[in-house]
Design a binder for these strands. Structure first.
Lengths: 206, 206
DNA sequence: GTTTTAATTAATAGCTCTATTAATTTTGCG
DNA sequence: CGCAAAATTAATAGAGCTATTAATTAAAAC
């Protein structure tokens, strides 16, 4: 019986690091612990990535782009504005549900280490601006048509973002405090998804 | 010329620790740094509070209660339900605006150190349950009257919480990314306050 | 004014972490 | 095989952090 040997240690380090960073953030995760969980020597982490910082950045950037691009794809111009927005909200919601720890990582790192915002600016702002511009013109067109009330794009985006993100950000705490069953939890989440769409669409009405 | 001597060093340690914990979280704040900023010996921090953990807990509990109780006071039964809710939302909003870093501290510590939820359970759940129960009966009464659509209390609270908290949680990041002027910022905040009330009240309509 | 108590400091033990270096093992290849 | 490159490890320097202890200074009490 042969022990299953690492097909690719570098990949394992990356995956383990990703998991730990997402769970505990940058400062609470040590290269020592990453190595221990991978089952390799701690120096190996530095062999592949030189510094903890670089290892983190690789993951952070990956997560950033992963977290924006699906939103662009879901923007379907062949249906009504309301339908289009609904799809966008749901895509955003599902994206966070599939990666519930990412918002925590973002907030944690961008708040405690604001310099990271800068590296993000060049990386992600491009995509963000595209998404923003797309919605912006779209929204203003509808406002001119009078189908929705006058509002700023940033307000709409903030609302979507707030409602979708906070649920998953707070869920671990809520789970700990209230003690849901597994199905109660899925019901709650599904409910919220529907709720969020309703809330936002209602908010747009003239 | 005499150097202004600490009237109360213990108090200064507490205040400095509070500021640093709120800025950077528990793990990123060292007793060494606290002492340096206070201008005293590092051992003094431990002399007064024994451990960093105990120092943190003192602050954490204080912030927790401070963050819940004002919500109960603003619950004014002499006006209409809608008006009452509006006041509650605004009180919540103002509370966070006055302590914009507290949500970050909560999320950060409750997510990375879930055991803290337990100490919170006994401390704050009492107050929370009171607030929740109050709104719960109130809300269900209105639902029976048919003045608002059927919905669960937790959904209403999650909506309020999401909209109010995320703004201030994300503001430092947004500020860094978008580069607002001081008045643009206050305008944005005031707008959001109004928006949040509108959004939530609309969401309740039958 | 001396004694007791409280506040403050210096010094340090013990730990953990990051990063590097040099040595060793494994792998790929001609 | 034999050798070069890559992967892996052991060892360790160097730094920072928490917490404690013993010594020193300031304040209070009698």
């Amino acid at each position: 019986m042969k022990i299953e040997r690492n097909t690719d240690t570098e990949q394992m380090i990356l995956e383990t690091a990703e998991r730990l960073f997402l769970e505990k953030g940058f400062s609470m995760t040590s290269t020592t612990e990453i190595a221990k969980q991978v089952g390799c020597n701690q120096a190996l982490v530095h062999y592949y990535f030189r510094t903890k910082e670089k290892l983190f950045e690789a993951i952070f950037i990956k997560k950033t782009t992963m977290f924006v691009s699906p939103l662009l794809q879901s923007y379907d111009l062949s249906v009504s504005f309301e339908e289009r927005l609904k799809k966008l909200i749901e895509a955003h919601f599902d994206l966070i549900r599939a990666n519930p720890n990412v918002p925590f990582l973002f907030f944690n790192e961008l708040l405690t280490n604001p310099s990271r915002v800068n590296s993000l600016k060049e990386q992600a702002t491009g995509i963000y601006r595209m998404a923003l511009a797309k919605i912006d013109t779209d929204l203003n067109l509808e406002i001119q048509k009078g189908t929705i009330r006058p509002m700023r794009t940033i307000d709409l985006l903030l609302t979507i973002f707030s409602l979708n993100v906070t649920l998953f950000l707070g869920l671990p705490i809520l789970k700990n405090a209230v003690d849901f069953s597994e199905e109660e939890l899925t019901t709650l989440i599904e409910n919220r998804k529907r709720e969020n769409v309703i809330i936002i669409l209602r908010a747009l009405k003239p």
